[in-house]
């Protein structure tokens, strides 16, 4: 009975998500973020599409990470942080009083700048999310989820023989792919990535970028990056932030070849930032 219901929901989900392919997943309206008295994000309006990689670029301290963190309410953990305006996920304001950030974060996964695997086994790292959200009814299902996630994280072949070795024993690049696999194990709809490659060497970066491109078929990916080349390589849409303002947002090709704003041009040509 339950399983039939699950299949139905899944089916419906897939249908709606297919329809949403070119549709807006997240829509931010007049978003302001304050850290105490400091106004970190000013009047940002942005629409993030489903099944697209959106890159946030900009100089250090421009607020791109802050804005990313407000998309799954990770800023709630900072006492002095205050968010105003509306951020709609599938037309529901995530800052509504009725929204439980815990539920939201299951839908909007996040990968951090520094690989941060739990000091547990590789298996437990992946299984943690599904366990707390009750995604698996038994051990066999959990095993399936772990394998599927590790495969989608493009790390299965490297770790399949040592699933019970500590996740912290992997190399930096492997750890980051493990973290990505962990994030997608909870079946999120949006994946936020905060400079996921900044701690990685070029080879690991290439692997992660390839992975991001693959993830696009299932998720809406938002990535913050310092590397303009990376933004150009992996993203379809790019947003340029400067001093807390969203200066320009458009197709990646257009931003890099034909920026409309002089500040964008200065940044991508290396004159500011």
């Amino acid at each position: 009975m339950t399983s039939k219901h699950d299949i139905d929901t899944q089916y419906n989900d897939n249908q709606t998500r297919d329809l949403d392919m070119n549709n807006i997943k997240i829509s931010a309206k007049k978003v302001q973020v304050y850290y105490g008295d400091a106004h970190a994000i000013k009047d940002v309006d942005v629409e993030i599409q489903d099944k697209t990689v959106t890159a946030f670029i900009g100089p250090s301290g421009c607020g791109k990470s802050t804005f990313l963190r407000s998309l799954n309410r990770m800023n709630d953990t900072i006492d002095i942080c205050r968010v105003e305006g509306e951020i709609l996920l599938d037309n529901e304001n995530i800052y509504d009083k009725r929204v439980d950030p815990v539920q939201l974060r299951a839908k909007v996964g996040m990968v951090f700048q520094k690989p941060n695997p739990f000091p547990k086994s590789i298996y437990d790292n992946i299984a943690y999310g599904p366990r707390i959200h009750g995604l698996a009814k038994n051990k066999a299902e959990l095993d399936d989820i772990v394998e599927k996630s590790l495969r989608r994280g493009a790390i299965w072949n490297e770790v399949k023989d040592r699933l019970h070795a500590p996740g912290t024993g992997l190399s930096g690049g492997q750890q980051q792919r493990l973290c990505i696999a962990r994030a997608i194990a909870t079946e999120p709809e949006v994946l936020l990535m905060d400079e996921p490659c900044s701690a990685l060497d070029p080879i690991a970066t290439a692997q992660v970028e390839e992975l991001i491109d693959e993830l696009r078929s299932n998720y809406s990916v938002v990535i913050v990056t310092h590397s303009m080349q990376q933004a150009a390589r992996v993203s379809q849409k790019t947003a340029f932030f400067h001093l807390g303002n969203l200066v320009e947002y458009g197709d990646t090709g257009q931003i890099f070849t034909n920026p409309q704003d002089s500040r964008t041009e200065s940044y991508i040509t290396g004159r500011i930032g």
Partner: peptide, 18 residues
């Protein structure tokens, strides 16, 4: 305890208590 561990758990949708 490094804050990154808390971020990791919260980012996966764990509650504060979890």
């Amino acid at each position: 305890v490094p804050p990154s561990i808390r971020d990791a758990a919260l980012g996966l949708g764990a509650s504060k208590l979890q």
